[in-house]
Computed example of a mutant assay.
Amino acid sequence: MNPLEHKLTYPLDKQLPEPGRSLELAPGVRWIKMPLPFALDHINLWLLRDNIDGQDGWTIVDCGVTRDEIKEQWEQVFVNELDGLPVLRVIVTHMHPDHIGLAHWLCERWNVPLWISMTDYVTACYWTTSTGGSSNGGQATVDHFSKHGLRVPETLEEIRARKSYYVGLVPRVPAKFVRIMDGHQIDIGGHKWEAIVGYGHSPEHMSLFCADKKVLISGDMVLPRISTNVSVPNYEPEANPLQLYLSSLDRYQPLPEDTLVLPSHGRPFKGLHERIAQQHQHHQERFDEVLTACVTPLSAFEILPIMFKRKLDTHQTTFAMGEAIAHLNALYFRGKLSRTLSDDGIYLFKTL
C-alpha cells in the first residue's frame, strides 16, 4: 500500500468478492468483481436492491466487457446473488468498454432498459459503427500521436492495428435508453440516488450518491489507488479535459466525510475529501514537472518519461500519450505554455 492509500480507510479490510459471488457493503448494496483483459485487471460492478412498479428485483450498475467468461460469471451471480428475484434495469456510469460492454446482453437477457447519460450513449453508439470505430482508434490515433511526437514505427503499427478495439469489447449497445441527467434523483428500492455529472474522463460520466446510505458509486471519477485517466482524443485534439476533470472533482466536496466510496477499480474506501485533495496535488505536481521540463521545447512523447517512470506497453502508451497531451493542453490554455508546429509536423510546447 502506498503512502497516499494509508490516508484512506478500507472498511472491508482485504475482503474481496469471489467469482460469481458478491459482498454486501450496505443494506441492499452488493459488490461484484469481474476480470478485465488489461494491465488493469478488474472492474467492480454493483447490485442494488430495487422495486419498480411494485416488482421486487435488482438494479445492476456497470457491466464488464463482452467476453464469454464474463457472461458465465454473470450467470453464476444470477443464480447465487439475486435471492430468486429478477434484474429490473441496468445503469451504466459511462461508455468505456469495461462499463458498457455487456449492457446489450444484460438488457436483452432480462428484457430491461439501459439507463445512461445521453452524451455517453450517443458516443457509444457511434463508436460501435464502422465509421466511429475507426475514428477512435487505428490510423486516426496514429496521426494524432504522430503530431505529438510519437514516431516509433513498431508502436505506431500496433496502434494502427487497434482500429477494432472498441467494437471488439462493445459489439453493440441497446437500441433504447433512459436518459440520466445531472441532479437526477433516481428512486432505487425506495432510496434516492442522486446523479452527479463528471467531465474529462468520458463525455458525460454519471456517479450515483445515496444520502440515506452515505454511499457513492463513483465510477471512474474517484479511484483509491490510481489516478483517473484523462486524455485528449484524436477526434477532439483541441480539448481541455483535464481542466474539466479537476473542476468535476469539486462536485463531490459537499458529500459527507464518512461517505463510503464504491470505485470501479480498487477497493471500497472512506476518505473521499482526502482522495480529492490527493488528485488535485497529483496533477499540480505533474504540471510543475511539465513546466520545468518545457524550458526547452518538448513534444508530448518527450514528456512521457518525465510523467511516467515505469515501462509502458502499447496499451498503456495510448493512455499515457493522451494524458501527456491533456496536461500540455491544460497549461497551454492557461497561458503557461506556448505551442509551435515544428518543420517535421510535431507540436512543441515551451514554458512562457
Rank of each mutant, 00 (worst) to 15 (best):
K163Y: 10
P97S: 12
Y165C: 01
H144N: 03
Q139V: 14
I100E: 09
F78K: 05
N111P: 00
T129V: 05
Y126Q: 01
L150V: 08
A161N: 05
V61T: 01
A140T: 08
S164V: 08
S135T: 11
C63Y: 02
V77A: 10
N111Y: 05
P153L: 07
V65I: 13
S146C: 02
D62K: 05
T155K: 13
Q73T: 06
C125F: 00
I91F: 11
R109F: 09
D120L: 05
S146D: 00
H148K: 09
I159E: 08
V142N: 12
I91P: 02
T131R: 07
K147G: 13
R67H: 09
T141P: 00
G57E: 02
S130D: 14
R162H: 05
T93K: 01
E75L: 15
R160V: 01
H104T: 12
S134D: 15
H104R: 09
T131W: 08
D143I: 14
W115G: 00
E108W: 07
D143W: 08
H104Q: 14
H144A: 04
W58N: 07
I116C: 13
V87L: 06
T66K: 11
T155Y: 11
Q55K: 12
S130A: 14
S130G: 09
H99W: 05
L156I: 02
T123S: 11
S117W: 00
G149H: 05
I116P: 09
H94Y: 13
G101W: 01
W58E: 06
D56L: 07
E81G: 10
E81L: 08
D120E: 06
S134F: 08
K163D: 13
V92K: 00
H144T: 08
Y126I: 01
E72R: 12
I70T: 13
S135P: 00
A161D: 05
N111K: 11
I70N: 14
Y121M: 04
W105S: 03
V65F: 02
H148E: 15
E154A: 15
S117N: 00
V90W: 04
C125E: 05
E72Y: 03
H104M: 07
F145E: 02
G138M: 07
E158Y: 05
T155Q: 13
T93S: 05
W110L: 04
V122N: 08
T119W: 04
A103S: 15
V77F: 07
L106R: 04
C63Q: 04
V90I: 07
A140D: 06
K147M: 15
C63F: 02
V152R: 11
I91Y: 10
C125P: 02
F145Y: 14
V112W: 03
R67Q: 13
M118T: 15
K71H: 09
E108K: 13
Q73D: 09
R162N: 09
K163H: 10
L106Y: 08
